[in-house]
Amino acid sequence: MPADERAIELTEVAALAAATLKAEEIIALDVSERLVLTDVFVVASGSSERQVRSIVDAVEEALADHGAKPVRREGVAEARWVLLDFGDIVVHIQHAEDRVYYALERLWKDCPVIELPEEVRAGAQGDGAGQA
């Protein structure tokens, strides 16, 4: 059973919040067929620990406005790989170097990619050109 409407809604909110802070390579994977604990992984990168923390704050604030609070937060102090567990979705915000090393997309490559809003896809390219 694919991710439900609420998970997709929260995914889009989280991705848009990350995009506003210039997060890079934002993707969303529907892991609902593989995991019972969550429906979606949102993965985004920041180029510095400061940016990672800022993205974390923006995502938490945006999701709180939609009634979602994290049930677990890990890695915030180090800001290299922050995991925010909102139940329906888990947001991974990684320092760009760590993202390359751990390659979550490769580990979960069999999971369907969730199409994100155009604003996210345009910003995720890093050039702001708006191409999908």
Score class of each variant (00 low, 15 high):
Leu16Pro: 00
Val82Asp: 13
Ile93Cys: 09
Asp85Tyr: 10
Arg99Gly: 12
Asp39Tyr: 14
Leu84Thr: 08
Gly67Asp: 03
Gln131Ile: 11
Tyr102Met: 14
Ala79Glu: 07
Ala79Arg: 04
Gly87Tyr: 11
Ala17Gly: 14
Ala64Thr: 07
Arg50Thr: 05
Asp4Tyr: 02
Leu29Phe: 01
Glu119Asp: 15
Ile89Gly: 13
Pro112Met: 08
Ala77Pro: 15
Val42His: 03
Gln51Glu: 03
Ser32Asn: 06
Ala103Thr: 11
Val90Gly: 14
Arg99Val: 13
Leu16Thr: 06
Lys69Cys: 09
Ala122Tyr: 11
Leu83Ile: 06
Gly123His: 08
Trp108Ser: 14
Ile26Pro: 04
Ala58Thr: 02
Phe41Thr: 00
Leu116Glu: 12
Leu63Val: 04
Thr20Pro: 04
Arg99Glu: 10
Leu83Thr: 10
Arg34Phe: 07
Val56Gly: 00
Tyr101Ile: 11
Ala17Asn: 06
Ala79Val: 09
Ser32Ala: 14
Ala3Gln: 03
Ala129Ile: 08
Ala17Ile: 07
Val31Leu: 07
Val120Leu: 13
His95Pro: 08
Asp85Cys: 10
Trp81Phe: 11
Arg121Thr: 08
Tyr101Lys: 04
Val91His: 14
Gly46Gln: 00
Glu105Pro: 15
Gly75Glu: 03
Asp127His: 08
Pro112Ser: 14
Val76Trp: 10
Lys22Phe: 12
Arg73Thr: 09
Ala77Cys: 04
Met1Ile: 07
Ser48Leu: 08
Gly130His: 08
Gly46Phe: 01
Asp57Trp: 00
Gln51Gly: 01
Arg34Lys: 13
Gly128Trp: 03
Glu78Trp: 01
Ala96Gln: 15
Ser47Val: 15
Ala122Cys: 07
Ala18Ile: 05
Val113Cys: 04
Val71His: 09
Leu63Ile: 03
Glu49Lys: 15
Glu78Phe: 02
Ser45Tyr: 00
Ala103Ser: 15
Val71Lys: 05
Lys109Arg: 14
Tyr101Glu: 10
Ala132Cys: 04
Glu25Thr: 05
Ala124Val: 08
Gly67Ile: 02
Glu33Ser: 12
Leu10Tyr: 01
Glu9Leu: 10
Arg50Ile: 04
Gln94Ile: 06
Leu10Asp: 02
Pro112Tyr: 13
Val76Ile: 15
Pro112Ala: 12
Glu25Val: 07
Asp57Pro: 00
Gln125Arg: 12
Thr20Met: 12
Val31Trp: 01
Ile27Asn: 07
Leu116Pro: 15
